[in-house]
Design a protein around this nucleic acid. Structure first.
Lengths: 363, 363
DNA sequence: ATATGAAATGACACCGGTGACAATTTGTCA
DNA sequence: TGACAAATTGTCACCGGTGTCATTTCATAT
């Protein structure tokens, strides 16, 4: 296995389709560039790293050669010397697919041409070796930084552990995250208050909420924000109108069935995510309640499903991509990383569509 | 910037949360292991790489030290010496989020503990520099392998280009992919024939199809498979009952509106993906046609939306995760990669739920 | 013209592994 | 028992960059 690695030098190049896509067949190294520019490789290195101790003339000369040859430094060699990699980890547990892909896209948008790449690492919070797995991953890869998605990001111990390995740790969440170097937080509270105001303005008084799983932080944020918002309009929600869901379609449906089966049922429901709002639609449909005539619904996330429902769901647009972009941008910022913890706030907004209107008059 | 890197040696270690998560503070190197085991580092290297030229006794001794110290070789150094990385690229364009995340999960499942990691690379086929971008990415990172998702995988030229860089190229698709080292293909044809049989068995004669975008291969595979299947039951589909969609909800809705507005409308519709099937539901709902009483629908993908629709959608389960697992497994297989192109077939199956039943009697 | 300090560059070891090949140990056969 | 091949192990250069520190260059002060 380690014997027959006789690759030889031959390009062999069986490329039936021809030379269409440029592939600098022999990777240019720093030595090549140095030779061609007539300087030492250390100077080339300086140019690459924007060292200020290079004469402008020298710099532009080297840059010319770099451009001409299409040279690009080997990340592995660079990483080895720097004792860190140019990789950014994306660590998540199970959140929904849309969320993950949006984060990936947003982050990579910001990373484009920075030389950094994104390496994904799903994990299982319930595994007994969970924290070790993640920590080992980060250590082995010598990650430059890690973007940690909720609810994993709520594990402060883990965040500290990662950070102690020299990794810049960024948490995405709806509250400030303990242990992170930086976090992009979405002000869910405010947005939910906005939803509350919307209901109040339409004239709803009988309002219910379906919250999310207890082991996430976001549901309580959203619930409290919503309740606070309602309170400002003099509306209170009775305890039996606050029911816990699991952020899944089914749980939303069950919760709604429960809520809608009482005599004096709510005329409006705020579901803490769109999945559950879809469940509410389902339950309403079965019971024969039309939306929005008999029941108004607001969701949270503005996931694709919001537009797939009928009528289109009024929901809160969660700025995933923006947060990811912020996170990634912060990661490749060269400033000192040891200051106070930094926090960036972004505020989600209500997107009014057709699932909300004034309550029925029948009262 | 390159001057003030005075990191010193200090562990500094501000870890308020304590020593909870093991973090081998000083990374063990191959030299440490060699010293502790009383052998040369080359021998340790041999053990790591499963070289057969190591005495069993020596091997177990080294392994003991490795286990004891928790040593794990530095991928960067290893990669540098091997002139390749231990990274596997995931290259995709048109993000259907579910699809991507499933591939990631499936691939990483197979990669677990292999030392390989997954690095994601979305790209834009319409960009003029598309092929170059991808090729450069692969070259720079010296990828061990790349998993290319459709429809990017249908670009043979690109596939050849990547392969010529020494990267194992794996395509996922519904047809054999030209240029790939290996491909995992889903036999969509067969599955669609199964769907056809299902409609036929229920007694439908008046059947329509909504296909997908012209620049993908899968729609034609699915269409042909379905049509062939119908033909075996003596059913043919008139040209005006075959309409092209764009694999999106809206396109499915529009297509269905068109199909359902004619006098002698179809009693059954096969949509080439679930998104469009959801669009069909929408259109039917607006027109007042109930599913499945007045209209039967079959989708393709078994995406989460299939269960979110009411009634639950009969659809074809596309074995994404399995294909990804196959792909990743093949990637870390150590065998010679230069044989004939290898192809693995997996066949999707029909999942019958509640969106299909016999056509209305009214005829 | 000479000393002097800052600016720019280069020489060389080193990051943590692997390849090529030499050296050593072991086993076998004459 | 010596010779020779096979099995095992070690030495050293090298992968492609960066850090440290020495060296060269250059402008300015004396």
């Amino acid at each position: 296995m380690s014997k027959k690695t006789g690759k030889g030098k031959g390009q062999s190049a069986e490329n039936p389709s021809g030379e269409g896509i440029k592939g600098p067949s022999s990777p240019v190294t720093i030595n090549d560039v140095a030779r061609m520019a007539g300087v030492s490789k250390k100077t080339v290195s300086r140019v690459i790293n924007n060292s200020p101790f290079v004469m402008d003339e020298t710099r532009s000369q080297v840059n010319a050669v770099i451009k001409q040859t299409g040279y690009s430094p080997n990340p592995q060699a660079r990483g080895l010397a720097f004792r860190k990699s140019f990789l950014i980890g994306l660590i998540y547990d199970n959140p929904n697919a849309e969320f993950i892909v949006n984060v990936q896209d947003g982050a990579l948008e910001a990373l484009r041409d920075s030389g950094y790449e994104l390496i994904v690492h799903p994990c299982d919070r319930r595994s007994p070796t969970f924290a070790q797995d993640v920590a080992q991953f980060v250590e082995r890869q010598k990650l430059h930084g890690a973007i940690v998605l909720p609810p994993v990001s709520e594990n402060a111990e883990l965040m500290y552990a990662l950070r102690s390995q020299g990794c810049i740790v960024i948490g995405l969440a709806s509250v400030k995250i303990e242990g992170a170097t930086y976090c992009a937080v979405s002000s869910d509270r405010e947005a939910c208050a906005e939803a509350a105001t919307h209901f109040a303005a339409l004239g709803h008084k009988n309002i219910a909420v379906i919250t999310g799983p207890a082991n996430h932080r976001s549901p309580s944020e959203r619930l409290e924000g919503f309740l606070d918002g309602l309170k400002k309009h003099g509306i209170t929600v009775p305890p039996e109108f606050i029911v816990r869901g699991g952020y899944t379609f089914e749980s939303g449906m069950q919760a709604a069935e429960m809520l809608l089966s009482v005599r004096n049922r709510p005329t409006a429901i705020f579901a803490c995510n769109d999945e559950m709002a879809a469940g509410v639609y389902q339950a309403a449909y079965r019971i024969g309640l039309t939306i929005p005539e008999k029941l108004s619904v607001i969701g949270f996330d503005d996931s694709p499903i919001a537009l797939r429902l009928w009528p289109p769901l009024t929901t809160i647009r969660f700025p995933v991509k923006l947060m990811a972009r912020l996170a990634a941008t912060r990661l490749i910022r060269q400033e000192g990383q040891e200051k106070e913890q930094e926090v960036a706030f972004v505020v989600p907004h209500l997107v009014v569509r057709s699932s909300t209107q004034a309550p029925p008059r029948k009262a």
